[in-house]
Design a protein around this nucleic acid. Sequence first.
DNA 1: TACTTTCGTGTAATCGATTACATAGTTAAT
DNA 2: ATTAACTATGTAATCGATTACACGAAAGTA
Lengths: 342, 342
Amino acid sequence: MSEKITIYDIAKKLNITAATVSRALNNNPKIKESTKQLVLETASLMNYKQNKLALALKSGRSNNIGVIVPRIDSNFFASVIRGIEEELYPHGYQVIICQTHENPKRESENLYTLIDAQVDGILMSVTDVNNENDDAFHNVLKKNVPLIFFDRSKHIDGVSSVTINDFKGGYIATKQLINQGCKCIAHLSGDQSLEIFKNRFLGYKQALLDNGITFNEKYVIQSKSSVDAGKKAIDMLLELDSPPDAIFSSSDFAALGVIQELKERNIAIPDDFCVAGFSNEPFTKFMELSITSVDQSPLEMGRMAARVFLEQVEKTDTIKIEKKVVLAPELHIRKSSTRKNS
Amino acid sequence: MSEKITIYDIAKKLNITAATVSRALNNNPKIKESTKQLVLETASLMNYKQNKLALALKSGRSNNIGVIVPRIDSNFFASVIRGIEEELYPHGYQVIICQTHENPKRESENLYTLIDAQVDGILMSVTDVNNENDDAFHNVLKKNVPLIFFDRSKHIDGVSSVTINDFKGGYIATKQLINQGCKCIAHLSGDQSLEIFKNRFLGYKQALLDNGITFNEKYVIQSKSSVDAGKKAIDMLLELDSPPDAIFSSSDFAALGVIQELKERNIAIPDDFCVAGFSNEPFTKFMELSITSVDQSPLEMGRMAARVFLEQVEKTDTIKIEKKVVLAPELHIRKSSTRKNS
DNA sequence: TACTTTCGTGTAATCGATTACATAGTTAAT
DNA sequence: ATTAACTATGTAATCGATTACACGAAAGTA
């Protein structure tokens, strides 16, 4: 059995009270130097470890922060979490992971569970798009638990967020396709109730307009983020009277599906058709026909979200700050959109 | 401000004691039905939420379990974690993530930190190969905290593990290369102090012997799990007097490096050279020249590890069980090792 | 009627650490 | 010499929930 050593055990052994022990361990200046040393030595001798739960109960701070993501087994979210963990680790925080699987109910559950678990903050990428979970979000704010959104955010007063400039991401990707000489550029979007997809779409549209290309609604298809969805989408697009000669996809997976399908049909990439994706998934650069993609610097996003959280807890005295950090997307230009003659 | 409602608040409002409230909420049969109802109604009316920290302190159980992995932003580990989270979520456990970054010191720190945080169990993939952290591991066992290894394990009495049969993984991958008619099969291994790499190597060797191919030490190279490491390794191998005509790599990334380098040298895959990797990383199936790879069913591994943990906590009465679960690897045969004539 | 059960609640200790307040012993100041 | 001001430590409450034990009231038994 494990002998749980408490400050009372130390106190008994030294014939002093637990209060003195506690103070000595916390380096309270009122404690005589000799006692302090004695306590510290005895503590390490007895292999004393502070019980964080007791501390947490007393202080009301658990030193845990909750992270909610749609799923963890996606390179993007895993990388963000890595960034969060790395930034928070030196500050003594532990990271608790929750997944919503894109299910708003789960998101609501996760929020309540984390609050129940007395986390000191919640960092999340939003799943709920229809404001079904407003109660859950307001519950968090009511409890005064710092809430920070990353990537997918919501507009809630007093809530900070770290996102990338999706508009710009859409813009530069589309611009690059235009630079290659593409005239009919299609776009695969996601659920536009989510701002990220809306903004990428708007960036795409603006790039077209800025370059004298008329926007055509028929070129925009809403699809899932999967290889199959990409294949289906390009099938539909190729049946149009004037099929596109390029595509900007909000998902790298869909972009891959597009490429696979085009190859199947012997359409040459990038010569006859250019493709750009979004997220810079690892596989995009590994492919023989590497895929142009917009990088979201997930590691940096996670670090930044963590830093915003830290600022927030440190400055409880100041008025609540709402900080909106927007990271710049970076276009990684690869073979799928690089024509020789350009 | 958030009004923290406790059972004392409910007690005061109803003119009863906190003890009664607690019992009512816990459905204690000794409480009169009418009181029980009253308490439940009042609790929900006042929006009472149990403070898990107080409960944790009293019960000694935090309902948190710690997961330690080398890194989270690898598809394999992220998937394992997903499996763990999904299995444990319905049981009310939260998952705390720690990364070692392959650094034994960090691993030791993580172990102590998790114990300090009073986790109810630790599920981990081992980083330490030189037994530097024996103290940390024994500290966990001394505290009677269930410890379960997955994928990379250590031999410690009383510790359960969930691994895949790496020997078999190495064997079937190598066998497949042999079936394609390859005669000189090289092997890229990892740090053989880690059992997984040792076993994959042994499986490779056995497959050779079983098929009348003499094992040649020069064909075995120890390398990191990266594209560049793969390139370097194949460079060395091709300089041998009798260069290999196939390679089984313990890493998909290294396998990819090999392929890229071979293409660079205009060596035809799979006709002149066959390649098989390990881990079944997502990109292996996405490549135009898809890569044969051994799947480790990470999701299932995570689920299984979680289940072993649950069994362990439920049966504290029984004698400690040491359970060694070994999952079967599955070879995904793809283009990189599929010759037409076979 | 007197005595034993049973039922429903209250009392108070406990988990382990922190901390406001009290107090005994020193030292400094007038 | 007497009081003020420190110093170092002890006492006890607190965080919020659980639970062994105690006890009065109601019900059952002889």
